Computed example of a mutant assay.
Amino acid sequence: MRAEHEIVRVQLSERSYDIQIGSAILSSAPEFFAARTKISHAIVITDESVQPLYADSIVAACATAGMRTTLISVPAGETSKSIAMADRLWNESLAGGADRKSVVIAVGGGVIGDLAGFIAATFARGLAFFQVPTTLLAQVDSSVGGKVGINLPAAKNMVGAFWQPQGVLIDVDVLKTLPEREYRAGLAEVVKYGVILDADFFAYLEANVAAIRERDKNVLTRVIARCCQLKADVVQTDERETTGLRAVLNYGHTFCHAFEATCGYGELLHGEAVSIGMLCASRLAESLQRITSDVTERQFNLLTELGLPTATPQVDIEPVMAAMQRDKKVEHGKLQFVLPIRLGNVELVGGVSNDLAKTAIIDGQ
């Protein structure tokens, strides 16, 4: 694969779109947008950390290209994915002269993509929008597939919609400015793809740990493109989670979301919670005799080498279990988990006892 430029096409009939991945391509953002929809007014939504790094230059480039722009910046972090912030953005968009032909451009990490996408899905009954993800986690996961939303105080991503972007522009060079902790957190979702869908890709990650940690742009372009293709394959088959296939993307997330909610949003980065959650799910699969211990061990070793946390947070178990009961995969009060049957293959498993789930958490402390 060449690092300069990769295109992954998400095939969803009239909602199909391109994911463009490469190095030094952020400067072509206005052309990327204009090639996919007519823009007279762009609402650029970003956060206070990303604004001076990338959003300001995109706004300036869009203005030079003849687009009227409204820039809205919110505080960085998970707490901005709230009802109060959505209300603020609806009103600021209105004050900025937004109408049904306005286009939302999300410039930032997963929080911004989810929040801006939710604004796009709901304002004026739906606006076109683009994703320009600036974190690794957003590039390989949240910017692809059309899931947008906000958090309730007691449940993550509980209010939202499926709203596909017009396109996703991924410049690997932006990862140079990403803080080390956030970069590592994004690698958890990368590892996830190997576990759930592609054992060969998992082995590629094991063989390229040093280059990944050094943020080699050639390796990153290959890694990101493969993750995007794997997710696109799933989304194309089960866009709205009606067949159960898309649920495989939630490997580790039942535990992950419960840890995030229990520890308080922002204490654990999402990718850190994913890393811990995947190991909980793998231990649970072991206890159900679905896998052997070497599957969990390979995940543990790779996550550790990539600098990710693996130990379960020291929290009271009952609030964690209560949070898991609010997981969107719960049916008729019964927990369901995405569990591996081997590297590269997982299944949705129901009827798991609370005691086994508790043990999977406690054994990681």
Rank of each mutant, 00 (worst) to 15 (best):
G307T: 06
R68P: 09
P30T: 04
Q325H: 12
N354K: 15
A225L: 04
E347D: 15
C263V: 04
K192I: 02
T221Q: 07
K38L: 14
Y204I: 01
L288Y: 09
F123D: 14
T122I: 06
D233N: 15
D99R: 03
R88Y: 08
Q236Y: 10
A55K: 11
A273S: 07
L94D: 13
A247H: 09
G271R: 01
L152Q: 05
F32N: 01
Y17G: 09
A116V: 01
G22R: 01
G145Q: 01
G194A: 05
I150P: 05
R88N: 15
E6I: 13
D363N: 09
R213F: 13
A65Y: 01
A120K: 02
D355A: 13
M67E: 04
A154K: 14
G97Q: 01
L187C: 03
Q236F: 12
L94I: 06
E260K: 01
S57G: 11
K231N: 02
C256D: 03
A323E: 08
H270P: 05
S27C: 07
V132H: 00
P340H: 06
V320W: 12
R326S: 08
S282I: 09
P309A: 09
R298S: 11
A357T: 11
V168C: 08
L302D: 10
P165W: 01
A128W: 15
L152I: 03
G351V: 07
K147M: 00
G149D: 13
V10E: 00
S73T: 06
G22Q: 05
F201E: 08
V159G: 04
G22N: 05
L115H: 00
R125P: 05
L26Y: 03
T262L: 02
G271L: 06
A124W: 10
L284C: 10
E180K: 10
P165D: 13
T312L: 00
I21V: 07
L197Y: 14
V315A: 11
I224P: 11
G145R: 00
K81S: 01
G167P: 12
I45N: 01
A185C: 03
E331K: 10
D200P: 06
H253C: 06
V209Q: 02
I105G: 08
Y251W: 15
G244H: 04
R240Q: 13
G97C: 10
